[in-house]
Write a protein that binds this DNA or RNA. Structure first.
Lengths: 332, 332
DNA sequence: CGTTTTTTTGGCAGCGCTACCAATCTATTG
DNA sequence: CAATAGATTGGTAGCGCTGCCAAAAAAACG
């Protein structure tokens, strides 16, 4: 079926049909300013009859601020970001804001280009992952005059608003937990850390903590590419082939850790007696496996919610620490 | 740090600074129409110097078509939709289109409201999940004149463009596969099917196929709420408590099936000799567990890609069947 | 009732940009 | 060198809506 371009109905036509002025229609539709009940009815009837759909493009141009919120996120494969979007989206929809997004693939250059493209829509706010941005990105954001929210990280200086938790603290506490449990020969399996700087921060403070307690990291296996269950499995396999007698492995996140868990399951490696496994994120699936995964649960949805609420309320610049929760689980 | 509203630079100011007319700046920036190399340089220098960011709101209003594509999706928790967004987003970004989205929570009423809100942005296309929409939604979409793409379903009549595969065929082939393997006492564990109509279609044609082959479904367990690993586990537990001697269970999707798998693992139920498990979606994680999950792999990312390509190319109305692949795995 | 106050209205100038058209300039041709 | 064709430009009317302001109508007051 060919869809023909039906001459779109404009506000002026509604006004004409309702026998009132344009500004009256505008007021009724936005429920702003004053008008009589009778007028309201006539306008609504005309709207109904003509099938009028307001044009937000025109509305936004005419008024001052837009109700667009731009998300520039590294990935949609990593469940973290859909979770953040989910939390934010619920709040934004309630407040008649509209979410727009694009995906950087963890590439700062692409991030810069996408931020530029986003700013062209004159959003009320731009939401980004973390603190590591190119100079160009920072400059544009500063000059834009729109709100900037940096998500899921707290280890650095915020441009405007930051909502999240400390990845360094998460790395530190994970290390402390493993040490407290008596593990001394600890390894690490992770994905590309240059791109995922938050995972990098966790790892570096994890290592610092081990060093400080006199039980430095014994071995590491870094896989190219994104985190995934398969990479976690592969990573652990390689690590164990290279290094004997490890008693615990820290993974860059739960996806990777699950891969490690499955490897042990398949190879008959007893968890945690022979090898302990520790993840990061607190995914639901980690609680459904036979031995609940030991991990750190992060408030991903809440991060999105709070960020959206702050933007909607046009709150002052601030950093909000939502914290995280270490889940002892049964794998470490 | 307070971000001050910096008087935004307009195209007129760039024109002034570059000593050329507004339309010339516009042509250079869009690389459209003709202009000399020298002019181009002067304009670009002025753009650079003033830090000009074009206003797409104004641009869209002034020109005819927008480069916005609206996604109205049921959920962000179900990985299916982030996958579709991912595929689409890559293509859209390449073509300088912008993705906007909102989430319906599988609620047709909310879908209608969100479609209305989306149409207010005069998108080039609206992308929706499946064919089941309220009358109001259909009416609005028809009247809107923008392209409509229905995703991930092919069992029904498309409004305009449809991209996906047949859920009925998937249900049918899954049943045929289990029967061919010799399973006769087959059960089902699923989530709320009124909302997820695609899962409902799979289930009903699964049952029809079993009936036709004289091995009707023995038992079912439907859980309220969304699909999840935990619900899958719980569902299988309940199903087995109620019904003895099942030899295979079909799950509404891989998340649910993984829950079932973990239940068996924890309870020491041998797979597939004692109980076979079959899922749907072909998630990566299903291949990383000790016994690869038997399932149907669906082209989710490709669905998004193709949909976006058709929209960008302003292709004629059509239904594109991307098919699916039955993965034999080791659990059935 | 006339007057003052309050509530409702309509008119219209932009918002920043693009599309169209006419004007200007440059290169070509005979 | 005039004439013609082609390449570059600038001017300007909207795109559809909102915000401001003044006019009109209704309500309140004395």
């Amino acid at each position: 079926m060919e869809l023909k371009q039906p001459a779109t109905v404009t506000l002026a036509e509604v006004a004409e049909a309702a026998g009132v002025g344009e500004s009256t229609v505008s007021r009724v539709l936005r429920n702003h300013g004053s008008f009589s009940g009778k007028t309201r009815e006539r306008v609504m009837a005309a709207v109904e009859r003509l099938g009028y759909v307001p044009n937000r493009i025109a509305g936004t141009l005419a008024s001052t601020g837009s109700r667009l919120v731009a998300f520039v996120i590294p990935s949609l494969s990593n469940i973290v970001f859909p979770d953040v979007l989910r939390g934010a989206s619920a709040v934004l929809e309630e407040n008649r804001y509209q979410a727009v997004f694009s995906v950087t693939d963890y590439d700062p250059g692409k991030e810069e280009a996408l931020v530029a493209a986003m700013l062209a829509w004159r959003p009320a706010a731009v939401m980004l992952a973390g603190y590591e941005h190119s100079d160009g990105t920072v400059k544009m954001l500063r000059a834009s005059g729109c709100r900037v929210v940096e998500l899921l990280d707290l280890d650095g200086d915020a441009l405007d608003i930051a909502v999240g938790f400390s990845n360094r603290a998460a790395g530190r506490e994970s290390a402390a937990f493993l040490l407290k449990r008596g593990y001394r020969r600890i390894g690490y399996v992770g994905h590309d850390l240059n791109r995922d700087t938050r995972a990098g921060k966790r790892f570096s403070s994890f290592c610092e903590t081990l060093d400080a307690r006199g039980a430095p990291l014994v071995a590491r296996e870094i896989l190219v590419g994104a985190s995934s269950v398969e990479n976690g499995r592969l990573g652990l396999e390689r690590l164990l082939a290279r290094t004997a007698d490890l008693d615990a492995v820290y993974f860059s996140n739960d996806d990777m850790a699950l891969g490690g868990y499955f490897h042990c399951l398949a190879e008959g490696i007893a968890i945690p007696s022979k090898l302990a496994i520790f993840g990061y994120n607190g995914l639901d699936i980690g609680r459904a496996i036979p031995q609940p995964l030991s991990t750190v649960r992060t408030p991903r949805v809440a991060t999105g919610e709070i960020a959206a609420k702050l933007v909607v309320a046009n709150a002052p610049s601030q950093a909000v620490d939502l914290g995280f929760e270490l889940i002892e689980g049964a794998t470490a």
